[in-house]
């Protein structure tokens, strides 16, 4: 029995990690006042580029690095249009997703059915020998630890440092931030790049750890769920962890319910994470007090500096 619980917990962590990383990146982007709906597109690009690079070089680390660069390149394109050319953020984010799905399908054609590389698990000495907890918590791959570090760093930087203050000022009132002499567009562009890097990293986790292979469209809406998680967290980094692990648990439970049969058609179980997203969004959004306090006031609003 304990073994089963252990196995389930392990899979929950692998299912939650990509959501956590992508969501924390997008949280920073939205805190700066930009809504990048292209998370799905950047993630799938990270997945295919990460897989391809790891496959060609034989190194998982290089794969992850290439995925981050790919995500950042995609987000730079988005940033140039949205910040430089003041295009509609919703439409441009959609364009990024459509483009990412197309390009990844084209790059990935050569890698369908190719056996993948799995990121090595780090074995933390002594701690990993603790019965039950040890193998679950202290025998993960590096990215799992990195995901928690990211949340901690983002949370600290946002609320305890000057950089975070500037970022939030830009997101809450870009006119005032501009008047104070901060470059709104530069801050936003950097935030967008950070979000892109995170989405790329999350994508590489999909193709190098979650299911080490390339399947077209393998992110299956996780980028969109990450976007919903940012709303769920009401833009507070620590709450993203709760959201990501909740969704990781829902995904894993549907897998296990399928394995047990349980007489429920698999399609109904597969639709659970999407339905859960809707329910969670409704529950959070209905609470106006909670959302109004933390929603960046300039979210999605364009800014053209007057000279």
């Amino acid at each position: 029995m304990l073994d089963i619980v252990q196995a389930v917990l392990l899979t929950v962590i692998t299912a939650a990690t990509p959501l956590l990383i992508a969501a924390i990146g997008e949280l920073v982007v939205e805190r700066s006042g930009v809504l990048n709906l292209g998370v799905e597109g950047m993630m799938i690009m990270g997945a295919v580029v990460g897989f391809a690079a790891a496959n060609q070089s034989g190194s998982g680390a290089l794969g992850v690095l290439a995925a981050i660069v790919a995500g950042m390149a995609m987000s730079a394109l988005f940033g140039f249009l949205v910040l430089g050319l003041v295009t509609n953020q919703v439409a441009t984010g959609l364009a990024l997703t459509i483009l990412g799905l197309g390009v990844s399908g084209m790059i990935g054609e050569a890698f369908i059915g190719v056996p993948g590389l799995r990121l090595p698990k780090l074995d933390i000495p002594v701690l990993s020998d603790i019965p039950f907890i040890g193998p679950v918590v202290f025998q993960q791959d590096a990215i799992v630890y990195l995901s928690f570090a990211l949340v901690g760093i983002v949370s600290y930087c946002l609320f305890r440092t000057r950089i975070g203050l500037i970022l939030r000022a830009v997101g809450d009132n870009h006119t005032s931030a501009h008047a104070l002499g901060y470059s709104v567009l530069k801050v936003r562009f950097l935030a967008v790049l950070f979000g892109g890097g995170c989405a790329g990293l999350a994508g590489s986790y999909m193709s190098l750890a979650y299911t080490p292979q390339w399947v077209e469209n393998m992110t299956a809406g996780r980028g969109w769920i990450a976007l919903a998680l940012v709303v769920f967290s009401s833009w507070l980094p620590m709450r993203v962890i709760a959201g990501a692990y909740l969704f990781g648990a829902v995904t894993v439970l549907t897998f296990h319910a399928q394995a047990l049969g349980a007489g429920i058609p698999s399609q109904f179980l597969s639709s659970l994470p999407y339905l859960a997203t809707i329910v969670v969004l409704v529950l959070i959004s209905a609470n106006r007090r909670l959302t109004l306090v933390n929603t960046p006031a300039c979210l999605g609003k364009p800014f053209v500096p007057d000279r």
Binding site: A228, P265, I278
Partner: peptide, 30 residues
């Protein structure tokens, strides 16, 4: 959901795409 609960229509409408295609898959196989 948007008018009543203020839920973001971008995300909810997209999530329903996955639900609808799974429903179609279930019906033609079942």
């Amino acid at each position: 959901l948007k008018t009543r609960f203020n839920a973001n229509e971008i995300l909810t409408s997209l999530m329903l795409v996955y639900v609808a295609s799974l429903l179609l898959d279930y019906l033609v196989r079942g």
